[in-house]
Design a protein around this nucleic acid. Structure first.
Lengths: 184, 184
DNA sequence: TGTACCATGTAATGGGTTACATGATTCA
DNA sequence: TGAATCATGTAACCCATTACATGGTACA
């Protein structure tokens, strides 16, 4: 795919930063839909410099420590823009270990199956709580020109994804217990 | 993760089959939540035989063609059962190129942003149509003891996931156009 | 002075895809 | 007899994670 390239170009298209800063972005604002560790970022940066899509200047922090402040080049902006406006079709369906487990749950007892579903439900409910907490940081919906608006959209997407998952799990529990059998 | 191992054990726990059969299962019944190509399956089968979790006997088709019919061993069943009843927490958030694109869509024009959202919406709507078609194959909900019941649950999960995604995309469109600006 | 954080890199390994490679069987 | 499908394998490559490795800065 080579999508990491565009994630980096996207970040640098907003503002110049170091590889370390990027790693932090991946851990925070991008976390719900993309991630990369520094061990993947640094080699990619080297490559993008070689391709002329980004460049850097060295800044001295304190008296010795060198940091590389990367910025995007015109060529980089051009390639980013191309990616940003084109349609990217859904790649292979995301792998989901729980769904695999549920698919094979016909080999489990009634109680065992319900337990794995409830365990999963609990985890997604906790995830929603974390996301709602982040959501509450937005007082009101930001205007769509501002870049906080895209933060808002992707966060909303994560909340809705998790809520749908919980709804599904609750439906599964209902289906399993529909004949008046005991709940766990 | 090593989840492929359990996908294979799960299949063989139901019935004996060849590597080729497994590849077909991955392309059909497992497709919405796990996938593996034959080039990944065959080496894994070799490994599982070496570990004593599965075994095979060679069958002759026609007059020459050898096929390996794999079956699960007692040890294999034991390890599968352990996995099948234990909780597997959500691994890293699934990567999603479209969400990345949307996150950076503050650099696009109003029309460009709406276009990428509409394109995405169309694709997910088409996906729903395919899934609903499969869904209609079930006359009524299978009883929860039968293994078609788990087929039903995971398919329902896929439908609900896609519907939630469409709802989210529609919400995004509404948010982008909420000030009475023209739709594309 | 010690601890948390800033900052950058490489190596080994795992997981997965695409391509390469071969050959038999079935059915029209 | 040719095309679709059955059937099994390996090699090269890409993407990503974990671990290894180093050292500086800021602040209490």
């Amino acid at each position: 795919m080579g999508t990491l390239k565009y994630a980096i170009l996207g970040l640098l298209n907003r503002k110049s930063m170091t590889g370390y800063d990027m790693a932090k972005e991946f851990e925070t604002s991008l976390f719900e839909f993309w991630n990369a560790k520094h061990s993947q970022i640094y080699p990619e940066l080297k490559l993008l410099v070689k391709k002329g899509l980004i460049e850097y200047k060295i800044e001295i922090v304190g008296s010795i420590l060198e940091k590389k402040l990367y910025s995007i080049t015109e060529q980089g902006r051009k390639e980013f823009k191309e990616w940003a406006v084109s349609h990217h079709s859904m790649k292979a369906v995301p792998k989901d270990e729980f769904r695999l487990q549920l698919f094979f749950s016909d080999s489990l007892t009634y109680e065992e199956r319900l337990k794995v579903i409830y365990d999963q439900l609990r985890e997604h409910q906790e995830k929603i709580a974390v996301l709602e907490e982040k959501m509450s940081k937005f007082g009101k919906i930001p205007p769509c020109q501002k870049d906080e608006f895209t933060d808002y959209m992707v966060l909303l997407g994560a909340v809705m994804r998790e809520k749908a998952c919980c709804e599904w799990l609750e439906t599964c529990i209902d289906l399993c217990t529909r004949d008046g059998e005991p709940k766990v």
